[in-house]
C-alpha cells in the first residue's frame, strides 16, 4: 500500500471515530431522557420509552439506516447522508444506553438512599449526590462496551453512502483490485481503535475502583 493510500485510510478511520464519538455522546443524552421516562411512574411517559427501546433494539441497524435515510426527505428534511447516518446511529445506541443506564439506576441499593434521606438530603440532592454518581459508575463498563459496538456498527453507514473507513476500503479495493489488502487494513484499523477504547475503559475503571460498591 502506498503511503498516500495509507494516509487516506487513516483519515477515513479518523472520520469513523468522529462519527462514533458523536453518536455515543448524542445517544447518551437521548438515552438518559429515555431512561428517565422508563423509570417514571407516569404510564404515558413509560409506554413510548418502552416502545422506543424495543423498536431500536429489535430492528437491524441497516434497516433503521435505510428507513431514516429514505424517510427524512419524505418528511421534507433534505439532509446530507452523513446527518441521516448520525441520527440513525444515535437513536440506535440511545436505546441500548437507556437500558444500560436503567440497569445502573435500579442497581443502586435502596439503603444508600435511605441513609441520604436520614442525613436530610432532599430528593434532588439524593439524586445528584448519591444515586446518579453511583449509577454512572456502575454503567461505565457497559458504556465502554457500547462504544466498541457502535464503532463496529458504524461500518454500516457506508451502505447509505457515507465515506468512512469501510467505504474507503471498499472504494480502494475496487479501484486497485486488492480487496485482501484493503479490507484487512480496515479490519486492522478497527481492531486498533477498539483496543485503544478498551484500554481507556479499563484505565477509567481502575481509577474508579476505590469507590466501588463494597
Amino acid at each position: 500500500m502506498s503511503p498516500r493510500l495509507f494516509e487516506l485510510m487513516l483519515k477515513a478511520a479518523g472520520y469513523t471515530v468522529a462519527i462514533s464519538v458523536a453518536a455515543i455522546a448524542i445517544g447518551l443524552l437521548i438515552g438518559l431522557l429515555v431512561c428517565a421516562a422508563k423509570l417514571s411512574p407516569r404510564p404515558w411517559l413509560r409506554w413510548p420509552a418502552t416502545l422506543f427501546v424495543s423498536f431500536f433494539r429489535g430492528v437491524p441497524l441497516l434497516v433503521q439506516l435505510l428507513l431514516i435515510y429514505n424517510l427524512l426527505p419524505v418528511l421534507g428534511l433534505a439532509v446530507p447522508s452523513v446527518v441521516a447516518a448520525l441520527i440513525g446511529l444515535s437513536l440506535c445506541t440511545a436505546a441500548y444506553q437507556a437500558e444500560n443506564l436503567r440497569g445502573g439506576f435500579t442497581s443502586v441499593p435502596r439503603g444508600l438512599l435511605e441513609a441520604a434521606d436520614m442525613a436530610g438530603l432532599s430528593p434532588w440532592q439524593q439524586f445528584r449526590r448519591i444515586r446518579a454518581p453511583i449509577a454512572l459508575r456502575l454503567t461505565v463498563p457497559a458504556l465502554v462496551n457500547e462504544a466498541i459496538l457502535i464503532l463496529k456498527a458504524s461500518s454500516l453507514i457506508s451502505v447509505v453512502g457515507v465515506v468512512e473507513l469501510t467505504r474507503t476500503a471498499q472504494n480502494l479495493a475496487a479501484s486497485t483490485y486488492e480487496p485482501l489488502l484493503f479490507y484487512s487494513a480496515a479490519g486492522g484499523l478497527y481492531l486498533a481503535i477498539n483496543w485503544l477504547v478498551a484500554a481507556g475503559g479499563s484505565l477509567t475503571e481502575r481509577a474508579l475502583r476505590r469507590g466501588r460498591l463494597a
Binding site: L156, T166, Q170, P179, Y183, A186, G187, Y190
Partner: peptide, 17 residues
C-alpha cells in the same frame, strides 16, 4: 480479531478477497 472487527468488513473480505 473476529470480535474486534465489523461483520460487514469480515463479509467483504471473505466474499471479495
Amino acid at each position: 480479531v473476529l470480535r474486534g472487527t465489523p461483520f460487514l468488513v469480515q463479509i467483504f473480505l471473505l466474499y471479495f478477497g
